[in-house]
């Protein structure tokens, strides 16, 4: 729903844009104590799975990621199978034997400098894409329809039984493209429960012959909450709501998340 408002705000400020101005300014920001950042995912595909451990830095730094080495990391499932990860490159840790199963809850435990950070997430079942269709985007809005704009409909059946959360990732000729209004294209089944969903995904600057690949990620609630709030954080905190750190399932003030997603993929080629 937030998307609708973003759209309204965009139109309103689109009008104002004729009079308004945007410029890069020098703005001093405070420095902060480095904090641990953990990012780990369990996929429905075969392992190995990866966890990265890094540190936050100053906002204006030009340094890349500052990896953290020597963390002791264990992933355990709800049948008490556990797997200790090994550091395969700077700050990147890899499972050795774990193979994911649907409807299992996985627990991540990271011990770094004698502080323990934990999170858990359930891997949902795979939801299959029924069909992918595409049509030219004839939509209005400021600027009108643009050459090379297409709407891809991703159709699938939402299970009626429980609350479901989804993430859609679109690739054009193998390259990932961002969502329309927000970086990540997310959906909860609040308005769609038990229905056949025709999700509209927009792609721009596409020409006949291009390959469009869509991944439907069925994600756990914690993963959804994290990416929903990450979208807010990435949208830059303009005039909108008070910015905040994305809602993490990790404890002990760690940044990042531990997610799980079941992936189904389909693709098509744009015709003339």
């Amino acid at each position: 729903m937030k998307r609708t408002f973003k759209y309204i705000t965009l139109i309103f400020f689109g009008c104002l844009a004729l009079m308004s101005c945007e410029k890069v300014i020098d703005l001093d920001l405070k420095t902060s104590e480095p904090r641990i950042v953990i990012e780990g995912n369990i996929l429905s595909e075969n392992g190995p799975y990866y966890v990265s451990v890094s540190s936050s830095g100053d906002y204006y730094t030009s340094e890349g990621i500052e990896p953290l080495n020597g963390a002791h990391i264990v992933i355990t499932d709800d049948l008490e199978h556990s797997d200790t990860l090994i550091e395969v490159s700077n700050g990147i840790y890899q499972t050795q034997s774990l193979q994911s199963e649907y409807n299992r809850t996985y627990k991540l435990k990271v011990n770094y400098n004698n502080t323990i950070y934990e999170a858990s997430e359930k891997l949902p079942e795979k939801i299959s894409i029924d069909s992918l269709t595409v049509e030219k985007d004839e939509g209005g809005g400021p600027g009108g329809p643009q050459e090379g704009s297409y709407i891809v409909y991703c159709s699938f059946l939402d299970p009626i039984a429980q609350e479901n959360y989804y993430r859609f990732t679109v690739y054009v000729n193998g390259e990932r493209v961002n969502g329309n209004f927000f970086f990540y294209n997310l959906m909860s089944d609040e308005l769609y429960n038990g229905q056949i969903v025709h999700r509209t995904l927009r792609v721009k600057e596409v020409k006949p012959g291009d390959q469009i690949k869509v991944e439907l990620h069925h994600i756990g609630f914690n993963t959804y909450e994290y990416f929903r709030s990450l979208n807010d954080a990435l949208s830059g905190g303009g005039g909108g709501s008070t910015p905040y750190n994305p809602i993490s399932n990790l404890n002990n003030n760690a940044l990042g998340y531990f997610g799980a997603y079941a992936i189904d993929t389909d693709s098509l080629v744009i015709n003339n």
Partner: peptide
Amino acid sequence: VTMPSGRYMVDGNIVPYYTERNGY
């Protein structure tokens, strides 16, 4: 207002890190 006092990387994105509300 609230502005970031740090940053970090998640999924290839630079993510702002906020340490306090209304600190700027």
